[in-house]
């Protein structure tokens, strides 16, 4: 711990991004001044489905859409509030994200270079809204694919909820994915796997194991995330600006089909595989 003192000072000075609300996160990533929220709580676009099931809604349905500027360029951020219903995607909140992406695409077709950023802190579809939630996640995914031809679609997963279910696929479709060490990215969450396959398959309470498999550091090491950054609002804002400066990737990750088929073929499912072994196995074919 002797070398910890300079780190401690940095740690104390830093502004945790994880601890911010979705609204404050969006504001932290935009250039100072000019933050403008669309469809905010006073528009009262809450979920019509939750009160019918005896669940208290939130007036913005847990999704904050904000306009502003990033590096002086017009930008739109859609931030999911993880504290509300685990950041689950319902019809209203999901539609807000899909529409924001769709309007950004229309901006680009009219020569306005709007930069899209998604803050994906979500357990995936909101089970109380079932197919409506799933449908809107499909809309978000289609909107990402349509928009990423014009501009990098940048996503941030900072934790502590992580990004799961259909929204993990949305994250994978983004042009540039920024993660912290605290982030998690995966299709099924650990609790779901344990419940379905048994504790012998996966002990969801083993945090070290879980993060070694689906944590931000591991996802970055195997090329499924682009930037690994500390839990620091300033550092994450810089990582977002940097992602746009880099411009469009040569090929979006989800179009690198051959590479990932080869990677999957390299895995022997009859042998146990942990996070470290996967890094060794996939390191040879690291993505550009």
């Amino acid at each position: 711990m002797s070398a910890a003192v300079p780190d401690l000072e940095r740690f104390l000075k830093r502004r945790s991004f994880i601890e911010l609300s979705a609204r404050d996160r969006a504001e932290a990533l935009l250039d100072p001044g000019g933050y403008h929220e669309l469809l905010g709580p006073f528009d009262r676009l809450h979920s019509p489905w939750l009160p019918m099931q005896g669940i208290v809604p939130q007036e913005d349905d847990g999704v904050i859409v904000a306009r502003g500027r990033i590096d002086g360029q017009p930008a739109v951020i859609a931030a999911i509030e993880s504290a509300f219903q685990g950041g689950s995607m319902g019809e209203v909140g999901g539609s807000k994200i899909a529409c924001a992406l769709e309007l950004a695409r229309q901006d680009h077709e009219q020569g306005i270079p709007t930069r899209p950023v998604l803050l994906l802190e979500t357990g995936g579809v909101r089970l109380q809204e079932a197919n409506l939630g799933l449908a809107v996640i499909a809309e978000i995914q289609a909107a990402i694919v349509a928009l990423r031809r014009h501009v990098p679609v940048v996503a941030v997963i900072s934790g502590m909820v992580g990004c799961f279910g259909g929204m993990s696929l949305a994250a994978a479709l983004c042009s540039h994915l920024i993660v912290t060490r605290q982030a998690r990215l995966g299709m099924n969450g650990p609790e779901v796997i344990e419940q379905e396959a048994g504790i012998e398959e996966l002990d969801s309470s083993d945090r070290q194991l879980i993060w070694s498999l689906i944590g931000g550091e591991q996802r970055h090491a195997v090329g499924l995330a682009d930037t690994l950054v500390e839990d620091d609002a300033v550092a994450i804002a810089e990582a977002v600006r940097d992602a746009f400066r880099r411009g469009l990737p040569k090929q979006p990750r989800s179009e690198q089909v051959k590479l990932f088929l080869e990677r999957l073929a390299a895995i022997d499912p009859s042998q146990p595989l942990d996070g470290k072994a996967l890094r060794a196995l996939w390191d040879q074919g690291a993505t550009a």
């Binding site: 939130q58 007036e59 509030e81 509300f84």
Partner: peptide
């Protein structure tokens, strides 16, 4: 925020000079 152990409050001018509170609780 409507998170565990928390609440959201929307406060705005009323239109009749009186105060009105509408609560939805879990």
């Amino acid at each position: 925020v409507v998170g565990s152990g928390d609440l959201e409050v929307l406060l705005e001018p009323s239109n009749d000079g009186q105060a009105h509170v509408s609560i939805r609780t879990s």
